[in-house]
């Protein structure tokens, strides 16, 4: 009888599978992405390597010596460490992070705009205390511009009411406001000494959200040639809440990682972060194979670094705030080994 190996589901819960079952899940995961994304599945050699990683009973795994990648991080720090800058300092001095990110708990550029001088003061302090690069990050958060929180019509209410034109007009209005806010905050943080700006979960509110991000990146790049600009995505497909928005002649709705990467690169970002969401009821092996398959086509074509999102619920990492190291390190290693990523 085939021995059962402890492994994880996408929600982080511990389960047991045989080597054959894990192999089957890897094959199903890559085929699911290949069919959905119209991309090639992983090769037999790549699946064999993933099987070795996921069928191991070791608690911890890692990349080969010499294959390490840099790590960028959204929202660095924990509330146990005093001030936010104390937390960044600990990330540098104690945890050995390659870079870090100053952030506000209300992780939205629109919200940060109202407290920008305070955030600039924290960035100044961070720059005086840290040697590693410090990003400033928040979300484009286009939904924040819709009623009742914002001044624009609420497309989530207009669309079900079949008011398509009104929903589109509301999003177009929100895009322009979001661009203005993102550029305002980013330039303020640059003035305070930031090494880079992170637009996190781009596209979370649909194609308008992604368009606003691309326009903000374009404006910032034009004014600041040396600014680090990272765009991390919200998911493996841009949702078409508008449906007709384009960037560079390409329709944004439905964009998968390769098309997303091309758009981000064209806009002028220096780092692209693909995100592939996790199915919590499937195994970590299934989810990781699926995520790698979606992102793999980016790797040959990218001219800028690709840092795969491997936080909670993306890139194969379980959807749990305190993910077990066995699952995280398997995903971490799998991403680097298979994709030859530029970073995580």
């Amino acid at each position: 009888m085939e021995p059962r190996i402890p492994t994880r589901l996408g929600d982080g819960s511990l389960t047991e599978m045989t080597r054959s079952e894990i192999k089957s899940d890897l094959e199903e995961g890559t085929q699911a992405a290949a069919a959905r994304g119209k991309v090639p599945p992983l090769t037999e050699d790549e699946l064999d390597h993933l099987l070795d990683i996921f069928a191991s009973t070791a608690r911890f795994t890692g990349v080969d010596i010499g294959d390490e990648v840099v790590i960028t991080k959204d929202g660095t720090g924990t509330p146990q460490l005093g001030s936010r800058v104390d937390a960044l300092y600990a990330a540098e001095q104690v945890l050995g992070h390659d870079s870090c990110e100053l952030f506000h708990n209300d992780y939205s550029y629109r919200a940060v705009k109202t407290v920008l001088p305070m955030e600039q003061q924290y960035m100044k302090e961070a720059q005086e205390r840290l040697t590693i690069p410090v990003h400033y990050g928040a979300q484009p958060d286009l939904g924040r511009y819709s009623a009742p929180d914002g001044p624009c019509g609420n497309w989530s209410e207009l669309l079900p009411a079949m008011k398509i034109d009104e929903a589109r007009a509301a999003q177009e209005e929100a895009v322009e406001m979001a661009v203005e806010d993102m550029v305002f905050v980013a330039e303020g943080m640059w003035e305070a000494g930031a090494d880079g700006i992170n637009f996190d979960t781009a596209g979370a509110a649909g194609d308008g959200d992604f368009l606003a991000t691309l326009k903000a990146v374009e404006a910032l790049r034009a004014g600041h040639p040396d600014m680090g600009i990272m765009v991390g995505m919200a998911g493996e497909m841009v949702i078409g809440t508008h449906g007709q928005l384009e960037y560079g002649g390409q329709r944004l709705a439905g964009m998968r990682p390769l098309a997303q990467m091309r758009a981000v690169q064209t806009a002028g970002a220096t780092i692209y972060g693909p995100a592939v969401n996790v199915n919590t009821s499937r195994s970590t092996a299934w989810n990781t194979a699926r995520a790698l398959t979606f992102v793999k086509p980016c790797m040959d074509e990218a001219k800028i670094p690709v840092h795969m999102n491997v936080g909670m619920g993306v890139g194969g990492v379980p959807m749990y705030g305190f993910s077990p190291v066995d699952a995280v390190t398997r995903c971490s290693r799998a991403c680097v080994d298979i994709l030859r990523l530029d970073g995580l």
Partner: peptide
């Protein structure tokens, strides 16, 4: 989670030279 990724795949930041490599990625898109 950050610690797990750092230990499994990271370049060790200021312990080694991860901060220098990421600076070239951020400012030059290398």
């Amino acid at each position: 989670m950050d610690i797990a990724h750092s230990c499994a795949s990271g370049m060790n930041g200021l312990r080694a030279a991860g901060d220098l490599v990421v600076r070239l990625q951020m400012s030059r898109g290398m």
